[in-house]
């Protein structure tokens, strides 16, 4: 049985909103911007087995922007790593689903994150280890554009290039916003005074300049994401890969989109209902489109 990635991603978004609403804590903006990337990775790209999470040959995944952990948890639950009911323990004392991913509590996580800028370096270590041990797995690392302000990212970039890590695939979730960020100039100021920006500019040139092979995609377009991931995996040219994915913070819920305040804010009853209505209508409209044309095939999970 095959499922449509858009359906899965929308279900994951519903799970994210539902969990944060029910627990009245957690992040929303970043998790919603990274959802399609996680869906593409876990439901199409990566060689993983939910029944055998410790499988040595599995592809490795690091969510370096660890504050989007809830998006990874919902994705893992949908993939079958643990029952979806466990999502309701998110952020509770004693939970395996810590606010930021903790590999010592949840064994299906390949690395712990939460302090920004460290995950790409760990990915470099995994990729070097794979080469040393003659293993064919790939290491995927998702970083944020705000996170890229950390200098350590650029330390890792140099070493990945030095050691020809073409088995390391980074994805930049470039949503243009961060927790607080900077005010924008008068000329840039939109009608909405709440807009603030992350300063990431010319990401493509930066990554190219450091000797990485780059791809630039719409991070909410599965055709583009899958095509870039496939090229990144198959180009064995000695270059580490970075997929610059342009995304929208809060994607899928109109009043959260591009609003920095929704970085970490819990919805009210009314906001929750509206968000779920919007996500349900995406599901409905997609189902009607699906009747007309089915183009994206997904590997059986």
């Amino acid at each position: 049985m095959s499922k449509q990635l858009i359906t899965i991603a929308t279900e994951i978004r519903k799970g994210i909103v539902e969990t944060v609403y029910r627990k009245q804590q957690g992040h929303l903006g970043g998790p919603l911007s990274v959802t399609d990337i996680l869906t593409a990775l876990y439901f199409h790209e990566m060689k993983v087995d939910p029944k055998n999470p410790g499988w040595e040959e599995r592809d490795r995944f690091i969510l370096s922007k660890g504050h989007s952990g809830i998006a990874q948890y919902v994705t893992l639950a949908k993939k079958g790593y643990f029952p979806e009911e466990e999502l309701l323990t998110f952020d509770d004392l004693g939970t395996r689903l810590q606010a930021h991913p903790d590999m010592t509590k949840l064994p299906c996580l390949d690395f712990s994150t939460g302090s920004l800028g460290q995950g790409l370096s760990a990915g470099v270590g995994m990729a070097i280890a794979a080469k040393r041990l003659d293993k064919n797995f790939y290491t995927y690392v998702v970083i944020g554009d705000g996170e890229s302000q950390e200098g350590q990212i650029w330390e890792a970039v140099n070493i990945a290039q030095k050691y020809n890590l073409d088995n390391l695939i980074g994805i930049l979730d470039l949503n243009g916003l961060q927790q607080f960020g900077w005010t924008v100039s008068d000329e840039e100021q939109s009608e909405d005074k709440r807009v603030r920006r992350a300063p990431e500019q010319r990401a493509l040139e930066k990554w190219q300049g450091f000797g990485w092979q780059t791809f630039e995609v719409d991070g909410h377009n599965f055709n583009q994401l899958l095509s870039a991931l496939q090229s990144a995996r198959t180009d064995k040219n000695g270059l580490p890969k970075m997929i610059i994915a342009h995304t929208v913070k809060g994607k899928g819920v109109s009043f959260m989109e591009n609003q920095y305040e929704w970085h970490s804010k819990s919805p009210t009853n009314k906001e929750y209902e509206q968000a779920m209505d919007e996500l349900n209508s995406i599901l409905l409209s997609f189902k009607s489109k699906q009747r007309q044309n089915t183009s994206i095939e997904v590997k059986p999970s």
């Binding site: 490795r60 690395f111 800028g117 995950g119 760990a122 470099v124 270590g125 995994m126 990729a127 350590q152």
Partner: peptide, 21 residues
């Protein structure tokens, strides 16, 4: 050789250890 970049070096080591080195 990890160069003059200690923060990266520490996390690279952690990533290596997670794979069994």
């Amino acid at each position: 050789q990890m160069g003059i970049a200690e923060q990266n070096m520490i996390c690279v080591a952690a990533g290596m250890a997670s794979v069994g080195l």
